[in-house]
C-alpha cells in the first residue's frame, strides 16, 4: 500500500464512521422519547453528515479517480465501507443509542483533538471545525449516560446491558493496525495506543458517575475499519440509505 492509498483508506475510515453513525441516529427522527431528544439526535446526525461531506470530499480528492463524495457515500457496497463496527450497530432502545454515542464521542473528541494538530493542513482544518461540534455531542451523550445509569433501577439495568453489549466494539476504535501505524509515521494521525489511555480516563470517569461497571474483558470485534468483515447490520442500513441512488441513478435535488 502506497502512502497515498493509506491516506485514502484513512479518510474513508473517518468519513464512513461519521456517515454511518449520522444515518443511524437519523433513524430516530420522529421517534425519540421526547421532542427535545428528537431534535438533539437530528442535530447531531446533521453535524456528523456535514463532517462526512468534508472527509469524503477530501478522500475523493486524494483518490483522484473522478469520484465525488456523494458517489463514495451512495455507490459503494458493504465490502468497500471502512467505518468502525460500533457505529453500524442497531439503535436498540434510546439508552443503547446513547451508550453507543457516548462511547464513540469519547473516542471522537480525542481523535479530533489530536488530528487538529496533523501535519496535513486539510485534515487539521476539518478536525478543528468538527471538534467544536463534537464537544457538544459528548457533553450531551455523557450527561445522558450518567443520568440514565444513575437513574431508576430499570434505566440502570438497561444502560448496563447496553454497555455489556457494545463494549466488544470499543477495542477496534483504539487499537492501531497497519493503516493507523502508517498514518502516525507520516505525521498525519496520532498514536492510537497513547490515545487509548486518554480515552480510558474519560470513559472511566463517565461510567463511574453513571454507576456502571466496565466489562472486565479486552475482547474486541474487528473487521470494520479494514473492511474485512462488517456485521450483518451494515448491509441492511445501506439498503435504506442508498435506496434512492440505486433506484434512480444520478437523481439530483
Amino acid at each position: 500500500m502506497t502512502d497515498q492509498e493509506a491516506l485514502f483508506e484513512y479518510l474513508l475510515r473517518l468519513g464512513d464512521s461519521t456517515l454511518i453513525l449520522g444515518h443511524r441516529i437519523s433513524e430516530w427522527c420522529g421517534h425519540a422519547p421526547v421532542l427535545e431528544e428528537d431534535i438533539a439526535l437530528a442535530n447531531t446526525a446533521l453535524d456528523l453528515i456535514g463532517q462526512t461531506q468534508m472527509w469524503l470530499g477530501l478522500a475523493a480528492e486524494v483518490e483522484g479517480a473522478g469520484r465525488s463524495a456523494d458517489e463514495l457515500a451512495m455507490l459503494r457496497d458493504v465490502w468497500d465501507f471502512r467505518n468502525l463496527l460500533l457505529v453500524e450497530q442497531p439503535n436498540g432502545d434510546f439508552g443503547q443509542t446513547m451508550m453507543r454515542q457516548c462511547l464513540f464521542d469519547a473516542f471522537h473528541i480525542e481523535l479530533l483533538t489530536a488530528l487538529s494538530q496533523s501535519d496535513d493542513n486539510r485534515i487539521a482544518g476539518i478536525s478543528a471545525k468538527a471538534l467544536k461540534e463534537v464537544t457538544y455531542h459528548l457533553d450531551r451523550s455523557s450527561e445522558t449516560v450518567i443520568g440514565l445509569g444513575d437513574g431508576t433501577e430499570e434505566s440502570h439495568r438497561r444502560m448496563q446491558a447496553a454497555l455489556d453489549l457494545l463494549w466488544p466494539y470499543v477495542g477496534e476504535m483504539v487499537t492501531p493496525d497497519a493503516v493507523d501505524t502508517a498514518m502516525h509515521a507520516a505525521g498525519i494521525a496520532p498514536d492510537l495506543t497513547a490515545l487509548r489511555a486518554r480515552f480510558d480516563t474519560r470513559i472511566d470517569a463517565i461510567l463511574t458517575d453513571a454507576t456502571l461497571v466496565k466489562p472486565d474483558s479486552t475482547y474486541a470485534q474487528t473487521g470494520g475499519k479494514t473492511g474485512f468483515r462488517h456485521s450483518e447490520h451494515l448491509g441492511h442500513l445501506l439498503t435504506q440509505m442508498q435506496w434512492l441512488q440505486r433506484a434512480y441513478p444520478g437523481a439530483a435535488w
Partner: peptide, 13 residues
C-alpha cells in the same frame, strides 16, 4: 437549560 440542541444547529433551547 432545556436542551443543548435547539431548532437549528447553532441554537440551544
Amino acid at each position: 437549560r432545556i436542551s443543548q440542541f435547539g431548532s437549528t444547529p447553532c441554537k440551544a433551547h
